[in-house]
Computed example of a mutant assay.
Amino acid sequence: MAHEKQVVDYSTGEVGTVNDNFVQLYVDKLDLIIEMTGENPTAVKVFTWIIKHMDRRNALVVSQTALAEAFGVSDRMIRYSIAYLKEKKALTVLKSGNTNIYAVNAQIAWKSDANGKRYALFDAAVYISEAEQDKPLFSTQLVGHAQSRERGQKQIKKKSA
């Protein structure tokens, strides 16, 4: 199946099947998502974008500048959207120095099995903006996935039907 993959449990040698590229949404929280869509569509776009890019423990490291660049909106609009999502308890923002770690409420959406929900320690997917980087001193695979853009140009592309 396209959304499943085989994994090996290295402690037992058993092969199991898990969902890949899968997000679980809880039915009892869909009304909240519908409510937020009516009240603040930009915040819901940011929320679903974070869900799409978060790791298997519901976390994503990304700056507000990179979010603003990805959506073609102002930093202020991102701050407003994040504050709204925090107010709705859809996500929380953890800090590591000046770094924002966005954690999606696991009672709304979850990307892994239920066993991992109780852990606070996580590896995070990190999304960086090329505009925030100094010119690298050497070539690296880490910089360059984010696309630079001209001021005001939208980064999110709509699918055409």
Results as ranks from 00 to 15, higher is better:
Val44Phe: 09
Val44Pro: 10
Lys45Asn: 14
Lys45Val: 07
Val46Glu: 06
Phe47Tyr: 15
Thr48Ser: 14
Thr48Asn: 13
Ile50Leu: 15
Ile50Phe: 11
Ile51Asn: 13
Ile51Lys: 08
Ile51Pro: 05
Lys52Ala: 14
Lys52Gln: 12
His53Gly: 07
His53Trp: 10
Met54His: 13
Met54Arg: 13
Asp55His: 09
Asp55Ile: 06
Asp55Ser: 15
Asp55Glu: 12
Asp55Cys: 15
Arg56Thr: 06
Arg56Leu: 13
Asn58Val: 08
Asn58Ser: 15
Asn58Trp: 09
Asn58Tyr: 09
Ala59Asp: 06
Val61Arg: 14
Val61His: 06
Val62Phe: 02
Ser63Arg: 05
Ser63Thr: 12
Gln64Arg: 11
Gln64Glu: 10
Gln64Pro: 03
Thr65Arg: 11
Ala66Trp: 01
Ala66Asp: 08
Leu67Gln: 06
Leu67Asn: 01
Leu67Cys: 10
Leu67Asp: 07
Leu67Ala: 09
Ala68Asp: 08
Glu69Phe: 00
Glu69Gly: 01
Glu69Pro: 05
Ala70Leu: 04
Ala70Cys: 01
Phe71Leu: 14
Val73Trp: 04
Ser74Met: 03
Ser74Phe: 01
Ser74Lys: 10
Asp75Arg: 14
Asp75Ala: 05
Arg76Thr: 10
Arg76Leu: 09
Met77Thr: 14
Met77Ile: 00
Met77Glu: 11
Met77Lys: 11
Ile78Phe: 03
Arg79Thr: 10
Arg79Ser: 12
Tyr80Met: 00
Tyr80Val: 05
Tyr80Pro: 01
Tyr80Lys: 07
Ser81Thr: 08
Ser81Ala: 15
Ser81Trp: 00
Ser81Ile: 08
Ile82Phe: 06
Ile82Ser: 02
Ala83Trp: 06
Ala83Cys: 00
Ala83Gln: 12
Tyr84Asn: 03
Leu85Met: 12
Lys86His: 03
Lys86Asp: 09
Glu87Gly: 02
Glu87Ala: 05
